[in-house]
């Protein structure tokens, strides 16, 4: 995988839980342009173990001198977000992937409804730059816990004006999805990014109201969940690997020196998909990529976020 060498140019604490990082190319040259909604995967080395986490790019896609990401400190972190908050300092070199977009704007859309919850605002920051440049019709609905958690509310108010609608839990202002989605013109697309409950509620409301499936867009990167340890056998590499509680299957495979394909590492893109040759237990599918019937067939698994229970799991790798 082609990586870009960057260094941290600035770090800013934007809310009690969110830090904003600015990256520039280590050699001082320009970074690749990208499209609104893109993310990069950031590699960090924590005590010899490489963590790779996806983060949305927040800057304007037109600016290629620097990339901007924001990281929320996760309570049940396996270490990645805590490391970003506590150990990453200005000047530190990091490796990131080229930008990748799994949450792109529908360019043919007549109107765009963006729904963000908390840190889920990040992919919309770059999308808004694109929407404004294209002169598109859009609304941004941004929900957060309390005024101090509205990381980018002031900045967005300035750039979006009347297009921005904020909902603050502590002020008891709530987003009424039913009302919002039941009164939109034909050709409207809805995009949601935020906590799982919000994503599910948006998808269900839109579907129940009869929105076409290809007008509903969501992005929800998953962190590999912590779980019970288990063993895997890689048939072609002829090795057996122990997957510890805090490691993902993909990380365990990489740590064993076996090269595996990957891109988003968040259960979304499908690139790391592996064929299951044999299993005597249950596959714990955590990804958003495989269909329900594929999951039920026990023939495929996404090692970036999914796990297994049982004595034997043989993979085609």
């Amino acid at each position: 995988m082609t990586m870009i060498n960057v260094k941290v140019a600035a770090i800013e604490q934007v809310t009690p839980l969110v830090k904003h990082f600015t990256f520039v190319k280590e050699d001082g040259s320009s970074l690749p342009a990208f499209s609104g909604g893109s993310h990069v995967v950031v590699s960090i080395d924590i005590g010899g173990r490489v963590h790779r986490n996806p983060y949305s790019l927040m800057g304007s896609p037109m600016e290629n001198e620097a990339y901007h990401i924001s990281v929320r400190r996760q309570e049940n972190s396996r270490g990645g977000s805590v490391f970003m908050h506590e150990n990453v300092t200005v000047g530190m070199p990091l490796k990131i992937t080229y930008p990748m977009n799994l949450f792109s704007l529908a360019k043919k859309g007549r109107k765009h409804i963006l729904i963000a919850g908390g840190i889920g605002i990040t992919p919309f920051m770059s999308q808004i730059a694109d929407l404004k440049r294209m002169g598109a019709n859009y609304e941004l609905h941004y929900a957060f816990r309390s005024p101090e958690h509205g990381a980018f509310a002031a900045q967005l108010k300035e750039s979006c004006g009347d297009h921005l609608h904020c909902y603050i839990d502590s002020n008891a202002t709530r987003l009424d999805l039913q009302a919002l989605l039941s009164d939109q013109p034909l050709g409207t697309h809805v995009y949601v990014c935020g906590p799982s409950a919000m994503v599910v509620a948006t998808l269900e409301t839109a579907r129940n109201l009869g929105w076409p499936e290809n007008h509903i867009h969501s992005e929800q990167f998953l962190s590999p969940p912590i779980g019970e340890p288990f063993k895997i056998q890689l048939a072609r590499s002829n090795v057996e690997i122990q997957v510890s509680a805090e490691m993902s299957m993909l990380e365990a495979i990489e740590a064993a020196g076996v090269e595996a394909d990957f891109l988003c590492r968040g259960g979304v893109c499908g690139r790391c998909e592996l064929d299951v040759l044999e299993t005597d237990g249950a596959l714990l599918h955590n990804d958003h990529f495989l269909t329900d019937s594929e999951k039920a067939s026990c023939k495929k698994i996404m090692p970036c976020v999914s796990r297994a229970k049982g004595e034997r799991l043989v993979l085609d790798l």
């Binding site: 082609t2 690749p32 990208f34 992937t97 080229y98 990748m100 893109c269 499908g270």
Partner: peptide, 11 residues
């Protein structure tokens, strides 16, 4: 198609 949908900038 699946391969191309994951085609990356710079690769």
């Amino acid at each position: 198609l699946k391969y191309l949908l994951n085609l990356q900038i710079g690769s």
